[in-house]
Nucleic acid binder design. Structure first.
Lengths: 251, 251
DNA sequence: CGGTGTCTTGAATACCATCAAGTCTTGTGG
DNA sequence: CCACAAGACTTGATGGTATTCAAGACACCG
């Protein structure tokens, strides 16, 4: 899951406003291409799409019902989650601004997971066929898309290794460092020592690392005791980056 | 990892023979398209490629050195493995005949894992650029390729769930059932009760399920005691499919 | 024939889950 | 604005699953 395709906004958008979205989409594509110096500006015609804003904890995209729409996150955090019949959950990937839930959504309509908002989330739904056609028409966009796909797969494989072969401390440290990485590419990390918005509840961390919320609490407390990180007011500060990396890499 | 792109052979091939490979590749593509009734026969020009045969346990494709080649398995079993610095290993996917190590190899040159032969393996290496160009030139092939990609990602996400949220028994039962599924699509499963070649050592199962060989041994013994499966002479028989599924699905 | 790889089994241990109780925060309706 | 409920987090006690350690049986190969 989780493909960053650079459909980000530079300015706030009137939520749900169709005109606003259309403008923004054009903007976003230009921003995207500008950042990459690949696509000349204004080559892209706006796609049909619909903007939405949902509060935290709402389900954005549920397996069975949505067929032809591909959601792209504009702002906020979300998660792609596989639900098991006993109520336990596995977060397959976190979705940050600019992410499509999964690159596979462009091709496949049978999903095995749902997308849930963690914070308030603004997102846009694209028509799958149109989005696909557009990507294949513009090489620069396709390039971006395939690179998003490679990133997504790399992260998935990394997660497999983490869940299969690493301890609780390592998993949690790596989760934090991965988020740090992704967020700093989005320019969402502030200052020195590094600090960023951290809307995850401990149960989110548990669902992502294959642990229980109780154990996550214990590990995070230990991290704090050791002066590695600090979490307060939904914000995470990395106090000792080398130390945290040491915990994460160990082995 | 692991993309089945239908580059299989119908007949044995003189190992390493360039002419043989070229013929076989044409054959293979036709077989592939015939199986799908999508590509008209003979539309495809043969690609440059090289055939290889390696014994079990040999490394086929190592991260750092191979840049522009994409290996495709012709016969035998292989595994894509992530090595950790303490010597522990995680198998990210098993590669069966017709599988490309990963669809991402078409686009990305920086690999984080190696491909190892489990049995003797025949495989072919394609030039990445040429293979890519060919896929994008022929819509039917591209279609096949994207579907391989979706399968690959689906399996990766399933593995994430298994490693994150399932017990040892469940993981091992699911591994067996997944292999049964894939092998039966390749027509490599015989008879009733279902039975197939099973070259995996217990340490392979351990590396794939995130367990230790010792514990794999105990679980398999229990499966046998309960009359679920039987393994002998590198062949696995599923004696009680519903029972095994019950163990696998549980929850 | 020794060496290596594979598998099995038992005992001790470690890591993480489960259970439980309590604090604190957040949100909601009266 | 307060009261109450629900959610979030913490901490300690206990237990289970899987690991680690160890030793031995067996097959295969050079």
């Amino acid at each position: 899951m989780n493909a960053h395709i650079g459909l980000r906004e530079t300015e706030p958008l009137v939520a749900g406003s169709r005109a606003g979205c259309a403008i923004c989409l054009g903007l976003a594509f230009n921003v995207c291409s500008a950042a990459n110096a690949a696509t000349p500006p204004n080559v892209l015609t706006p796609l049909r799409q619909s903007g939405h804003t949902v509060p935290a904890r709402r389900i954005i995209w549920r397996g069975p019902d949505m067929h032809d729409v591909v959601p792209v996150i504009c702002s906020g955090w979300a998660a792609a989650i596989v639900m098991l019949s006993d109520g336990s959950r596995q977060i397959v990937s976190f979705l940050l601004p600019g992410d499509m839930a999964s690159t596979t959504m462009l091709f496949d309509a049978k999903p095995y997971c749902q997308v849930e908002a963690i914070t308030e989330v603004r997102y846009r739904s694209f028509n799958r066929g149109e989005l696909k056609a557009m990507l294949f028409k513009h090489p620069a966009l396709l390039e971006r898309f395939t690179s998003a796909w490679v990133d997504e797969k790399t992260r998935a494989d990394q997660l497999i290794v983490d869940l299969g072969r690493r301890t609780a401390d390592e998993r949690i440290a790596r989760l934090i460092l991965n988020l740090l990485d992704r967020l700093s590419k989005l320019d969402l990390v502030r200052g020195e020592p590094a600090e960023f918005d951290f809307p995850l509840r401990q149960h989110h961390i548990a669902d992502a690392t294959g642990l229980t919320p109780v154990h996550v609490s214990k590990v995070l407390s230990e991290f704090r005791r050791n002066g590695l990180i600090n979490i307060s007011e939904r914000s995470l500060t990395i106090l000792d980056a080398p130390g945290l990396r040491r915990v994460a890499q160990m082995r």
